[in-house]
Design a protein around this nucleic acid. Structure first.
Length: 473
RNA sequence: GCUCCCUUCGUCUAGUGGUAAGGACUCCGGCCUCUCACGCCGGCAACAGGGGUUCGAAUCCCCUAGGGAGCGCCA
């Protein structure tokens, strides 16, 4: 058998996750689950200044909320740790040194400012702003002068001057890059910490990862990472680049995540199942339009079904999955989702019936206490237009309804028949005023079950209110 | 500027030389129903443009246009 498949998600803890990150994490998770492999979480916190402890906690919490439990990583451990790059400094130093010894990397004494000027000049001259080794080389005495002044060098990888590099992208197929286009790049900052290119590639290899699914923005950087691994004689994972995700406005979903952030989704009451089902179909075709569990999504996940073109985040489509998720949720699940207090008004023996009745009209947690209030709370507030409509309906209508209840039973059929017999109205003119008077809303759950659930006193009071108005007929 | 990636209904997508170009969301219509929502059924709607190759191109090649990424001591 081939080696077990290992994937990872490697966020840097600089803030909350957004839809793009979530999809990347999800795809890696699904790929691992599909193949019975492992899903690793690695925290890329080499840039101490930008990393926040709080973000690490939050990222972990958000992933768990979605159900993307990692098999190895922070909090759970594993055989390839540490899983936070801040704990791997020694490893990076060791491998940087190996590259230096092998002549694959060298010290660069140029300063930030000098490099910036250089790039500017190159661009102004109409040439690519790639690093020029000849230009960067400083005379011996200048190097010692800078050393004595307390300056430290950065470590640069020595890229072969010509030739081509090929690799097989597991989503996009064969890729070819000309080495001449790639300048010598920094693998170690002058403060001794590793750069992203280096630590990221090294850890992917050292952690035994077989597949790395990441954003398309890394595609043109992949040759650099392959070069590093080659020089180190380490195995490289199979890289696959996911299409970009753009916002409703067409702009990339990056820092300005807008409403596509995890914080927003969760505050808005989006269900994890909804988000997962939506994200799974962004850049990956599904055979099914049904709501699926993570296990089911994993079962149909295939690398050759991953798309290549950018996808747009559409809140309306997310809303569709939210509806399916709510409809599929069990009573316990819904109760937990709505939170404590959502049922305060609902008699405990009617809670399940209540949920079954209102579920088709629920999309947000707040909808549950809302309907609880309509059914078991004080009377609804009526808008001026509703008041007008109910007054126009007339007192006779509601008197007839009440008489029906007294003579028969407090259910919709009895009420409707009584009103129909008394006033001769039917259809929309019969049901709409009833719904309005009883619920204070133009739409909602089926009126019959809703009335069955409602205490008779409440029902009568709602109807009675409109018998006092002067009959306009 | 250079290199690379991308382009099928409004949106997410199926399609890999021969299809009436299929599905989902939105929207519209019908049914459940003597109301609205839910649900079910149906309808509108697309191969970026131009050249080739071929008996035959959404599918292969070239060019153009548009979108995006990378070229950082950010990740």
């Amino acid at each position: 058998m081939s080696q077990p498949l290992r994937t990872r998600f490697a966020p840097s803890p600089t803030g909350r996750l957004h839809l793009g990150n979530v999809r990347t994490a999800l795809f890696n998770f699904l790929l691992a689950r599909m193949a019975g492999g492992s899903f690793v979480l690695r925290i890329e916190d080499t840039d101490a200044a930008r990393s926040e402890e709080d973000s690490v906690r939050q990222i972990a919490e958000d992933l768990r909320w979605l159900g993307l439990q990692w098999d190895e990583g922070p909090e759970v451990g594993g055989g390839y740790g540490p899983y936070r790059q801040s704990g791997r400094a020694g490893i990076y130093l060791e491998f940087m040194d190996r590259l230096r010894q092998a002549g694959s990397a060298y010290d660069c004494w140029r300063t930030d400012d000098e490099l910036r000027m250089f790039r500017k000049a190159r661009i102004a001259a109409g040439r690519p702003p790639i690093y020029d080794r000849q230009w960067a080389a400083l005379p011996e005495d200048e190097v010692s002068r800078r050393r004595e002044a307390g300056q430290s060098p950065a470590l640069r990888f020595s890229v072969p001057r010509d030739g081509q590099l090929h690799f097989e992208d597991c989503i996009r197929g064969r890729q070819t890059f000309g080495l001449a286009e790639i300048g010598d790049f920094v693998i170690g900052r002058s403060d001794g910490t590793p750069s992203f290119f280096f630590s990221n590639a090294l850890d992917d290899s050292l952690m035994g990862l077989t597949h790395v699914l990441r954003g398309e923005d890394h595609l043109s950087n992949t040759p650099r990472q392959l070069l590093i691994l080659q020089a180190l004689e380490l195995p490289a994972p199979s890289y696959g680049h996911l299409p970009l995700l753009v916002g409703p406005d067409g702009a990339p979903l990056s820092k300005r995540m807008g409403s596509a952030g995890m914080a927003e989704f969760r505050a808005d009451g989006i269900m994890p199942e909804a988000l997962a089902n939506y994200a799974a179909r962004l850049g990956h075709a599904s055979d099914s339009g049904k709501l699926m569990s993570l296990a089911e999504l994993a079962a149909e996940f295939r690398l050759d079904k991953v798309g290549r073109s950018p996808a747009r985040y559409d809140p309306i489509q997310l809303e569709h999955w939210q509806g399916l998720a709510v409809h599929a949720a069990s009573a316990e699940h819904l109760a937990e989702w709505a939170g404590p207090g959502a049922f305060e008004r609902v008699p405990s023996d009617r809670r399940e019936a209540f949920l079954d009745c209102v579920r088709p009209n629920v999309l947000r947690p707040a909808d549950i206490p809302h309907w609880a209030d309509v059914l078991f709370g004080r009377g609804p507030r009526f808008s001026p237009s509703m008041v007008q409509e109910l007054e126009q309906t007339g007192a006779a209508f509601f008197s007839a309804a009440l008489a029906g209840i007294e003579a028969g039973a407090p259910d919709l059929a009895t009420i409707a028949n009584a009103v129909k017999a008394g006033l001769g109205v039917k259809g929309r003119r019969l049901y709409r005023p009833l719904r309005l008077a009883v619920t204070g809303a133009e739409s909602g759950p089926e009126l019959g079950p809703l009335i069955d659930l409602m205490p008779t006193d409440t029902l009568k009071a709602r109807l009675e209110r409109w018998t006092a108005v002067r009959d306009s007929c």
